[in-house]
Design a binder for these strands. Structure first.
Length: 440
DNA sequence: AGGTTAAGCGCG
DNA sequence: AAAGCGCGCTTAACCT
């Protein structure tokens, strides 16, 4: 239960809920899509979440505490180097003090400014400055370690229940506007994975004796949903063939054979594929890839020429959102867009990007909720001792007794892939390990 | 003392 | 005027 709830009275909460139900339920009942989302997705999901929160995750606090000490020692050394390079001591955690050292004392060039007009010292700026000066790299390294220590290795051990050795996150079911869950206290949906350094934290998310951690994630789920919703033939065929979709996209955009796609071309295609899901413009693509805007524009043009269904989807979604004031997922979940008709260009465009993204992100959220329900039903029906313990947007994590391992390995992917019949297959990748890192 | 905002960054 | 969607958490700085 979130801490804030402690300040409320249960009877008042119940009364508010009653009134909300009286007003909102008839509106849900009037729409088949909304009824499906409420009855077949959200209500059963609530039960699954309750059980996941109660189950919790076993966390090896001692491992994290060792990592904290190691990180602390390395930070101290970086701190020393930073003071040496700056010629003065300062608070490495303070963007304001960093700004004074960088832009007043050392006269480094200002690359960009924050919303409030102060010179920015964010990662992108530091990365650029690091090409010409020593201090920015030291600070980048320090920040990476400080993030790991303060947010994860220091914090998680304190959140472990002393009796069970487990952490019990809260999954908010009605916070994210797209229908995603949001995890808090602690947030288990942003545990590091992208760097080797950060990934070590996952070694502390462990299976109890006689058990294994099983991780199962949907592969490229949002792009598959884009293929389904848009009906684009090229994208649909790529998934039907089981192609590496980024490679296939690169082959189309650059006009080469899939086998002849270079690693850089594939990297470009991947950025474009992800960018499209978020409604990215030529400006955004150019700054992301470090290329000219004209070049970015021509890549996008070539993409839309090769995948005309996707181009049509983008246009159709904008138009629909503007006419109706909302967009919906495949299952009928709605996202209302208050600013879709705003006279302010930037506000309207931001709403358009949200409109383009929401059906994909939201349908993915619908699908994994259906998967959670199906998995829990299966576990109950078969009287298994396996437990769902985490959800990370496109991934389910289970704690599985060794004796059930082969059964779960065989059934879980089919169960997850079978929750809906889209125009492209759903694929699930499964991993097993003694901890969360190994399971990946 | 305690709350809020800004800046920054972890994840999908 | 802004430029890539959706979240939660930490520290510093500022405010009451």
């Amino acid at each position: 239960m979130p801490i804030e709830r402690a300040a409320h009275y249960a009877a008042e909460d119940a009364e508010v809920v009653m009134h909300l139900h009286q007003v909102l339920y008839p509106q849900i009942e009037a729409e088949p899509g909304l009824s499906f989302v409420y009855q077949r997705i959200e209500l059963p999901t609530a039960q699954v979440l309750y059980r996941m929160e109660r189950a919790g995750v076993l966390v090896d606090a001692a491992t994290l505490e060792r990592q904290s000490s190691e990180l602390g020692a390395r930070m101290l050394e970086l701190e020393r180097k930073a003071y040496e390079a700056a010629g003065d001591s300062f608070n490495l955690n303070s963007p304001k003090q960093i700004g004074e050292i960088f832009f007043e004392r050392l006269k480094l060039p200002v690359i960009k400014k924050t919303a409030s007009g102060a010179p920015s010292t964010d990662e992108e700026v530091l990365e650029k400055l690091a090409a010409d000066y020593p201090l920015p790299r030291i600070l980048l390294d320090y920040r990476a370690l400080a993030k790991l220590k303060s947010t994860y290795t220091d914090k998680l051990p304190r959140m472990v229940d002393a009796n069970t050795g487990r952490v019990h996150t809260h999954y908010a079911q009605a916070v994210a506007v797209t229908g995603r869950l949001a995890s808090s206290d602690p947030n288990l949906q942003n545990i590091p994975i992208r760097t080797a350094e950060g990934r070590r934290i996952r070694e502390a998310f462990v299976a109890p004796a006689g058990h294994r951690i099983v991780s199962a994630d949907y592969s490229q789920i949002e792009l598959r949903i884009m293929a389904h919703i848009s009906g684009d033939p090229g994208l649909t065929e790529a998934f039907a063939r089981g192609d590496d979709v980024h490679r296939a996209t690169a082959a189309e955009i650059f006009g080469v054979d899939p086998a002849g796609v270079s690693s850089e071309q594939r990297r470009y295609a991947k950025v474009i594929n992800f960018g499209l899901i978020y409604g990215m413009s030529a400006f955004g693509l150019a700054s992301n890839l470090g290329i000219e805007r004209d070049a970015a524009r021509s890549y996008i043009e070539r993409y839309f020429a090769r995948y005309p269904g996707v181009a049509a989807y983008m246009e159709q979604t904008r138009a629909n959102a503007r006419e109706q004031g909302f967009v919906e997922t495949v299952f009928g979940r709605r996202l209302w867009l208050a600013e879709i008709r705003s006279p302010s260009g930037p506000r309207r465009q931001a709403a358009e990007r949200a409109a383009i993204n929401a059906p994909m992100q939201g349908t993915a959220a619908d699908l994994i909720k259906l998967a959670m329900i199906a998995v829990q039903e299966w576990i109950d029906r078969e009287r298994l001792a396996s437990r769902l313990i985490m959800q990370v947007h496109d991934e389910l994590v289970l704690e599985v007794p060794e004796g059930e391992l082969e059964l779960v390995r065989g059934q879980l992917p089919r169960l997850m892939a079978g929750v809906a019949e889209l125009s492209v297959p759903l694929e699930v990748e499964l991993g097993v390990g003694r901890n969360w890192d190994e399971a990946h």
